[in-house]
Design a protein around this nucleic acid. Sequence first.
RNA 1: GGCCCGUUCGUCUAGGGGUUAGGACAUCAGAUUUUCAUUCUGGUAACAGGGGUUCGAUUCCCCUACGGGCUACCA
Length: 517
Amino acid sequence: MSEKKIRTRFAPSPTGPLHIGGVRTALYSYLFAKKHGGDFLLRIEDTDQNRFVPGSEEYIIESLKWCGIEPCEGVGFGGGSFAPYRQSERKPMYRQYAEQLVQSGHAYFAFDTSEELEALRKKAEEAKSAFSYNAEIRMALSNSLTLLEDDVVRRKAAGEHYVIRLKVPQDETITFTDLIRGEISFQSNTVDDKVLLKSDGMPTYHLAHIVDDYLMQITHAIRGEEWLPSAPAHILIYRYLGWENVMPHYAHLPLLLKPDGNGKLSKRDGDRLGFPVFPLDWNDPVTAEKSSGYRERGYYPEAFVNMLAFLGWNPGTEKEIFSMDELIAAFSIEQIQHAGAKFDPEKAKWFNEQHLRNKPDIEIANNIRASVAKEFSFDENDIRLSENFLCKAVSLLKPRVQFENEMQSVGNYLFVAPSTFDEQVISKKWKEGCKEFFSELQNELSSLDDFTAENAKQLFETVASKNNLKPGEVLQLFRVLLIGQAGGVDLFGMVELLGRDETCRRIESALKQIDLE
RNA sequence: GGCCCGUUCGUCUAGGGGUUAGGACAUCAGAUUUUCAUUCUGGUAACAGGGGUUCGAUUCCCCUACGGGCUACCA
């Protein structure tokens, strides 16, 4: 790996919505490429026509866009000079490499039907062992190693289905260096004769990803740990194709695990524990199942990405809140964890909260304006949609929410006057003279010129003492008159936000509604 | 079953032959706040077990246990 330009890829299958584990794989590949001034591309691995799910390719593209993980070339993103980037469109390219391997004696034609193989598997299972199409057994099956050459030609000419299998050597040790785990060795006898080309003429993942990575000049293949067991077969394919000296460096990422219990994170866990497992909402066209996404749940993409980056990686410092650019600068494969990470929905929320805190009020105000207008049916010229009002509301609400979209429900009292009033507070705190006090307060406030939190507070205290009341005695009542409830944002900050007219209106209206003797 | 990968607080992790084993989330307690939230302070809490190697091992090696992945004409 010297002066060669770094090129990484994300190569998902369009078999459904992109799992957050997949997004993380894409993210790490992206960060690594960007860090080294390289290219990151998106390739769609749709070699299995049976598992194709309509809409999932679009879903993948939209997810990456939302996350800000933008490939500089590939399906949905244009650019690049290695098109097409969809394997189904590259179908004609693969066969020659499979046949080349047959020519060189490293692969063979196999005519065994799925039924025959299925039967062998069953038999092996009954004998409590696993069937493996390998050196030990291949000489007993129907393939070009056992059949007469004429027979092979005749069968092919007759249109009989066949696959091309890799001829894995016996008694060899296959060693390679994983960027995360270091040197890993496999005994070739434990590797099976993987199918390279299927009977429908499509390549399997094993052949396709190698041909494409080679042709697309990929330098680093970052993928999930589930691929580790087939890595020796991949090394062999590179070797027999004569590409071993330019093959990409592999990095196998640890998996994302369930928050509780054992096993890898699945959609079911999200449903069960109430958190999304996908970046975006997804309605499955086949099963009609609905899955919720981080975007619709209200996460900021930068918080989502930040959270994902920290699941299995850390910068080695104590800084935790990162922008994408900061992640790019800090990223390194050496700091990737070796063990799987249990997903923690609580910490995910915390990341969003932190990004929310760091976001300027004006930006949040602009983000929530439309939904506030809709929620409360405000006219577009309503003062409560003004930049000034919304910014103040946001700053008041910011410490009380983790998501932008919680603001209007958590702070709904800032936008609309209450219709009910906390009886407990009233019956506990209301006493002689309160009515007079609030009437006078309303009166005084209505003529307060500079209507700030500070001035309103001062006035409140003055009027209270004039009525022989301690501020503490009527503060809670004041809050209930204004918003109907006991808790909430800073009282006088809210008074300033509401403004003179609305504040007075609310006091007056509350005094009428509360109807005390 | 076989093969491969892994194992530091409940969780995400830092660290690394000699440390009071650090941080964050969660949790608990106190302070601040007229309330709730925020904020601040503090607390509980971890090197899976057994053998080596070593003056010394949580750190290196081996074994065991446990966890995970793979074992398809799926990726």
